[in-house]
């Protein structure tokens, strides 16, 4: 008994040690990003490990102005909100039909939509570019929104279908008996119950779209249309840009999501790992 207690104690100490190492490894680079953003150009190269001596807040103002970050924030918000406005209704409708209505071709439609998971955007980026050009949507935010919507679709349908499937059938039937139409029952009874599914998608798809660089770099070639990740890459190649300003810009780009994450941590962790634990 005593021996076991001792071994448990060593395990506990080890666990705390490993935990501390992990926390430091994760947070360290982030702290240095903020610290570097506050250093003057000279200090950045001479005082590498130290904290900033005079806080050069001007780096943030310069990054904001030189990087045109206001415009890019607006673009990122439009693209993220636009994608949500398409993905949430489209996946809810399809997910509900696939979960609760018997109709011929149901399984075929479900498999077809899920097969999209096997086609990551990396491998169809070039033909997608061609299609977007054909539609006249190159260098437009709606073009990017449609592409992002399609990208988020398969997992969204999968998530929504499993949420709807977990809602007791009696509830919908009660709605139908009360005289609702199928769509009426959907909006009044079922959709409110599927709110956790919508929140999951909001977080998962929202984070992915907000941070997306690859497709945006292919579909948007005008600086005025750039989203934040694109803008940041453009910023790195601008003349006369020094590391402190680049770090300030990175911190500005990172801040909104990190703040949201810290506020709604539980939902973020549940939402982002939903694909793996749920289903």
């Amino acid at each position: 008994m005593r021996q076991r207690g001792l071994r448990g104690g060593i395990g506990r100490v080890g666990a705390y040690g490993v935990m501390a190492v992990c926390v430091v490894t994760t947070l360290f680079p982030l702290i240095w990003m903020v610290s570097g953003a506050l250093k003057s150009g000279q200090e950045f190269y001479s005082n590498i490990w130290g904290l900033p001596q005079d806080l050069t807040w001007a780096n943030f103002a310069r990054a904001w102005a030189e990087g045109g970050l206001g415009q890019k924030f607006a673009n990122s918000i439009i693209v993220t909100a636009g994608t949500m406005a398409i993905v949430l209704p489209v996946t809810s409708l399809a997910g509900y039909a696939l979960a609760s209505i018997e109709f011929p071709g149901r399984r075929a439609v479900y498999v077809y939509l899920l097969l999209g998971i096997m086609v990551p955007f990396g491998v169809i980026a070039i033909p997608v570019f061609t299609v977007v050009v054909q539609l006249g949507l190159l260098n437009t935010l709606p073009g990017l929104i449609l592409v992002y919507s399609a990208q988020s679709l398969p997992l969204g349908v999968f998530l929504m279908r499993s949420f709807f499937a977990s809602i007791p059938r009696e509830l919908e039937e009660a709605g139908l008996v009360d005289g609702c139409t199928l769509l009426g029952a959907f909006f009044r009874v079922v959709l409110p119950l599927a709110k956790p599914g919508l929140v999951t998608q909001l977080i998962f798809t929202g984070t992915t779209v907000w941070n997306e660089y690859f497709m945006a770099s292919i579909l948007l070639h005008r600086e005025a249309l750039q989203t934040l990740p694109l803008g940041l890459v453009t910023f790195t190649s601008k003349n006369g840009i020094e590391f402190p300003e680049l770090f300030a810009a990175s911190a500005i780009v990172t801040a909104p999501l990190v703040i949201l994450y810290l506020i709604a941590q539980r939902q973020f962790i549940a939402g982002l790992s939903a694909g793996a634990v749920k289903g």
């Binding site: 994760t26 947070l27 982030l30 990003m33 984070t207 907000w210 941070n211 660089y213 934040l228 990740p229 940041l232 890459v233 990175s250 780009v253 990172t254 999501l257 990190v258 994450y261 973020f268 982002l272």
Partner: peptide, 9 residues
């Protein structure tokens, strides 16, 4: 935390 950060950053 790094999960919510952009690959670019």
């Amino acid at each position: 935390l790094p999960v919510v950060m952009s690959f670019v950053v």
